[in-house]
């Protein structure tokens, strides 16, 4: 299997990662090699086998609907890159 540079750029965009233009062929090669490794699975007949999402066969526990959290905005925003008037700032969102 061989990923093209175009595909690498598409994936990087989907994952919102800027990658060095010059490194694109390296990524394409590494990802292709890794997916070659992954291809081994294809040969296995898994028909009728239930996918296993969790190692333990447990079910979701439910939490009582009670407020346990207090306002910690000042603490939380003390580590934020850019805030104003209690809001997190980002470059303009265009709808």
């Amino acid at each position: 299997m061989s990923l093209s540079s175009h595909e690498v750029l598409k994936i990087a965009h989907l994952a919102r990662l800027s990658i060095d233009e010059a490194r694109v062929p390296d990524y394409a090669r590494d990802l292709s090699n890794i997916f070659d490794l992954v291809e081994k699975m294809r040969a296995v007949d898994t028909h009728g086998i239930a996918p296993m999402a969790h190692p333990l066969d447990a079910v979701q526990r439910l939490r009582p609907d009670a407020v346990t959290e207090t306002d910690q905005r000042a603490l939380f925003q003390s580590i934020a890159p850019q805030v104003e008037a209690g809001l997190y700032l980002v470059p303009k969102v265009i709808e």
Binding site: L62, R63, E69, R73, F76, G86
Partner: peptide, 29 residues
Amino acid sequence: GAATAYGALPNTQACAVDLAFPGVLPVLN
């Protein structure tokens, strides 16, 4: 476990889980 009341001051009802801090986990209500 953060409150859902409407009209609170911005980000005063957003707890660590709501803010997606590294390592936090969801538990269903």
